[in-house]
Protein backbone atom coordinates (compact mmCIF):
# COMPACT_ATOMS: atom_id res chain seq x y z
CA UNK A 1 0.00 0.00 0.00
CA UNK A 2 2.74 2.36 1.02
CA UNK A 3 4.50 1.51 -2.22
CA UNK A 4 1.44 2.49 -4.27
CA UNK A 5 1.24 5.84 -2.50
CA UNK A 6 4.92 6.44 -3.17
CA UNK A 7 4.39 5.57 -6.84
CA UNK A 8 1.37 7.86 -7.06
CA UNK A 9 3.41 10.71 -5.60
CA UNK A 10 6.15 9.94 -8.05
CA UNK A 11 3.55 10.05 -10.81
CA UNK A 12 2.35 13.43 -9.61
CA UNK A 13 5.92 14.61 -9.58
CA UNK A 14 6.44 13.49 -13.12
CA UNK A 15 3.14 14.97 -14.16
CA UNK A 16 4.27 18.34 -12.80
CA UNK A 17 7.39 17.90 -14.86
CA UNK A 18 4.98 17.59 -17.77
CA UNK A 19 6.69 17.79 -21.06
CA UNK A 20 4.20 20.10 -22.69
CA UNK A 21 5.05 23.68 -23.43
CA UNK A 22 2.85 26.46 -24.70
CA UNK A 23 3.89 29.76 -26.22
CA UNK A 24 3.54 32.84 -24.05
CA UNK A 25 4.85 34.98 -26.85
CA UNK A 26 4.45 34.16 -30.52
CA UNK A 27 5.75 36.48 -33.20
CA UNK A 28 5.78 35.85 -36.92
CA UNK A 29 7.16 38.26 -39.46
CA UNK A 30 7.12 37.92 -43.18
CA UNK A 31 9.34 39.84 -45.49
CA UNK A 32 9.09 40.17 -49.24
CA UNK A 33 11.97 41.67 -51.13
CA UNK A 34 11.10 42.82 -54.64
CA UNK A 35 12.31 45.25 -57.26
CA UNK A 36 9.99 48.11 -56.45
CA UNK A 37 9.38 47.77 -52.75
CA UNK A 38 10.13 45.67 -49.71
CA UNK A 39 7.09 44.59 -47.78
CA UNK A 40 7.14 43.47 -44.16
CA UNK A 41 4.34 42.47 -41.84
CA UNK A 42 4.39 41.49 -38.18
CA UNK A 43 2.06 39.24 -36.30
CA UNK A 44 2.20 38.97 -32.52
CA UNK A 45 -0.89 36.81 -32.13
CA UNK A 46 0.53 33.45 -33.17
CA UNK A 47 0.25 30.52 -30.79
CA UNK A 48 2.13 27.25 -30.51
CA UNK A 49 2.19 24.12 -28.35
CA UNK A 50 5.14 21.72 -28.05
CA UNK A 51 5.06 18.25 -26.51
CA UNK A 52 8.61 17.42 -25.52
CA UNK A 53 7.85 13.75 -24.85
CA UNK A 54 7.27 12.91 -28.50
CA UNK A 55 8.51 16.07 -30.23
CA UNK A 56 5.10 16.98 -31.59
CA UNK A 57 4.70 20.68 -32.27
CA UNK A 58 1.87 22.77 -33.68
CA UNK A 59 1.61 26.41 -34.73
CA UNK A 60 -1.47 28.48 -35.41
CA UNK A 61 -1.10 31.88 -37.06
CA UNK A 62 -4.19 34.09 -37.50
CA UNK A 63 -3.78 35.73 -40.93
CA UNK A 64 -5.80 38.86 -40.17
CA UNK A 65 -3.40 39.70 -37.35
CA UNK A 66 -0.54 40.48 -39.71
CA UNK A 67 0.08 44.20 -39.43
CA UNK A 68 1.48 46.14 -42.36
CA UNK A 69 2.89 49.62 -42.42
CA UNK A 70 0.41 50.55 -45.14
CA UNK A 71 -3.13 49.68 -44.20
CA UNK A 72 -4.12 49.42 -47.85
CA UNK A 73 -1.56 46.64 -48.24
CA UNK A 74 -3.05 44.88 -45.26
CA UNK A 75 -6.47 45.09 -46.88
CA UNK A 76 -5.17 43.67 -50.14
CA UNK A 77 -3.23 40.97 -48.33
CA UNK A 78 -6.41 39.77 -46.61
CA UNK A 79 -8.87 40.38 -49.42
CA UNK A 80 -6.95 39.47 -52.55
CA UNK A 81 -4.06 37.22 -51.68
CA UNK A 82 -4.71 35.26 -48.51
CA UNK A 83 -8.53 35.40 -48.66
CA UNK A 84 -8.47 35.38 -44.89
CA UNK A 85 -12.24 35.28 -44.41
CA UNK A 86 -12.16 31.91 -46.10
CA UNK A 87 -8.78 30.75 -44.77
CA UNK A 88 -8.37 32.53 -41.43
CA UNK A 89 -5.30 30.66 -40.20
CA UNK A 90 -1.97 29.30 -41.28
CA UNK A 91 -1.19 26.07 -39.48
CA UNK A 92 1.82 23.83 -39.01
CA UNK A 93 1.59 20.36 -37.50
CA UNK A 94 4.80 18.43 -37.20
CA UNK A 95 7.54 16.82 -35.16
CA UNK A 96 10.73 18.39 -33.83
CA UNK A 97 13.92 16.39 -33.93
CA UNK A 98 17.17 17.34 -32.25
CA UNK A 99 15.78 18.85 -29.07
CA UNK A 100 17.21 17.62 -25.78
CA UNK A 101 16.14 18.73 -22.34
CA UNK A 102 19.33 20.57 -21.49
CA UNK A 103 20.51 24.14 -21.30
CA UNK A 104 22.00 25.92 -24.29
CA UNK A 105 21.04 26.63 -27.87
CA UNK A 106 20.36 23.58 -29.97
CA UNK A 107 19.90 23.18 -33.68
CA UNK A 108 16.60 21.52 -34.40
CA UNK A 109 14.49 20.73 -37.39
CA UNK A 110 10.77 20.20 -37.73
CA UNK A 111 9.07 17.98 -40.24
CA UNK A 112 5.40 18.18 -40.89
CA UNK A 113 2.50 19.68 -42.78
CA UNK A 114 2.13 23.39 -43.39
CA UNK A 115 -1.30 24.72 -44.31
CA UNK A 116 -1.48 28.20 -45.82
CA UNK A 117 -4.35 29.61 -47.88
CA UNK A 118 -6.13 26.26 -47.60
CA UNK A 119 -3.26 24.35 -49.23
CA UNK A 120 -1.34 21.74 -47.22
CA UNK A 121 2.26 20.86 -48.11
CA UNK A 122 4.85 18.68 -46.38
CA UNK A 123 7.79 20.82 -45.27
CA UNK A 124 11.05 20.54 -43.40
CA UNK A 125 12.05 23.62 -41.43
CA UNK A 126 15.29 24.30 -39.55
CA UNK A 127 15.60 26.41 -36.45
CA UNK A 128 17.06 26.69 -32.99
CA UNK A 129 15.65 26.01 -29.56
CA UNK A 130 17.15 27.15 -26.32
CA UNK A 131 16.17 26.00 -22.85
CA UNK A 132 16.72 28.80 -20.35
CA UNK A 133 15.18 29.31 -16.91
CA UNK A 134 12.55 26.69 -17.61
CA UNK A 135 11.47 28.49 -20.79
CA UNK A 136 12.12 27.44 -24.35
CA UNK A 137 13.15 30.07 -26.90
CA UNK A 138 12.45 29.03 -30.48
CA UNK A 139 13.73 30.83 -33.54
CA UNK A 140 13.36 29.88 -37.16
CA UNK A 141 13.73 31.52 -40.55
CA UNK A 142 12.45 29.85 -43.69
CA UNK A 143 11.16 30.63 -47.16
CA UNK A 144 7.66 30.16 -48.45
CA UNK A 145 6.95 30.03 -52.17
CA UNK A 146 3.63 31.77 -52.82
CA UNK A 147 2.94 29.58 -55.81
CA UNK A 148 3.11 26.43 -53.65
CA UNK A 149 0.15 27.66 -51.67
CA UNK A 150 -1.85 28.89 -54.63
CA UNK A 151 -1.41 32.56 -53.72
CA UNK A 152 -1.69 34.35 -57.04
CA UNK A 153 0.04 37.61 -57.76
CA UNK A 154 -1.34 39.58 -60.71
CA UNK A 155 1.18 40.26 -63.45
CA UNK A 156 1.13 44.02 -62.95
CA UNK A 157 2.35 43.53 -59.39
CA UNK A 158 5.19 41.11 -60.10
CA UNK A 159 7.69 43.84 -59.49
CA UNK A 160 6.09 44.67 -56.15
CA UNK A 161 5.77 41.26 -54.60
CA UNK A 162 8.45 38.57 -54.37
CA UNK A 163 7.60 35.05 -55.47
CA UNK A 164 9.22 33.76 -52.33
CA UNK A 165 8.76 35.42 -48.95
CA UNK A 166 10.93 35.02 -45.90
CA UNK A 167 9.18 34.03 -42.69
CA UNK A 168 10.79 34.62 -39.30
CA UNK A 169 9.39 32.97 -36.18
CA UNK A 170 10.17 33.99 -32.61
CA UNK A 171 8.45 32.02 -29.87
CA UNK A 172 8.87 31.76 -26.11
CA UNK A 173 7.36 28.73 -24.38
CA UNK A 174 6.50 27.93 -20.81
CA UNK A 175 5.51 24.54 -19.40
CA UNK A 176 1.82 23.87 -18.99
Amino acid sequence: MRLVIVILFLCLFFEVQAQKYKSVEGKVRFFSEATLENIAADNAKASSVFDESNGNIVFSVPIKSFEFRKSLMQEHFNENYMESDQYPKAIFKGTVTGFENKAGTQKVSAQGDMTIHGVTKPVNVDGTMELKDGQIYLKSVFKVRLEDYNVKIPQVLWQNIAEEVEVTMNFIYQPI
Partner: peptide, 28 residues
Protein backbone atom coordinates in the same frame (compact mmCIF):
# COMPACT_ATOMS: atom_id res chain seq x y z
CA UNK B 1 2.22 2.65 -17.28
CA UNK B 2 0.50 4.78 -14.66
CA UNK B 3 3.43 7.09 -14.48
CA UNK B 4 3.74 7.73 -18.19
CA UNK B 5 2.52 11.20 -18.89
CA UNK B 6 0.15 11.06 -21.82
CA UNK B 7 1.91 11.93 -25.05
CA UNK B 8 -0.24 14.30 -27.08
CA UNK B 9 -0.92 13.86 -30.74
CA UNK B 10 -0.58 16.87 -32.98
CA UNK B 11 -4.35 17.26 -33.13
CA UNK B 12 -4.57 17.22 -29.33
CA UNK B 13 -1.95 19.96 -29.23
CA UNK B 14 -3.93 21.93 -31.78
CA UNK B 15 -6.78 22.12 -29.29
CA UNK B 16 -4.48 23.83 -26.82
CA UNK B 17 -3.40 26.77 -28.96
CA UNK B 18 -4.77 30.21 -28.17
CA UNK B 19 -7.41 31.77 -30.33
CA UNK B 20 -6.79 35.40 -31.29
CA UNK B 21 -8.96 37.83 -29.33
CA UNK B 22 -9.86 39.90 -32.38
CA UNK B 23 -13.31 41.40 -32.60
CA UNK B 24 -13.39 40.49 -36.28
CA UNK B 25 -13.95 43.92 -37.78
CA UNK B 26 -15.41 43.93 -41.26
CA UNK B 27 -12.91 45.53 -43.61
CA UNK B 28 -13.35 46.62 -47.20
Amino acid sequence: ILCMAPAYSQDDLMNLVDEPDDKGYASA
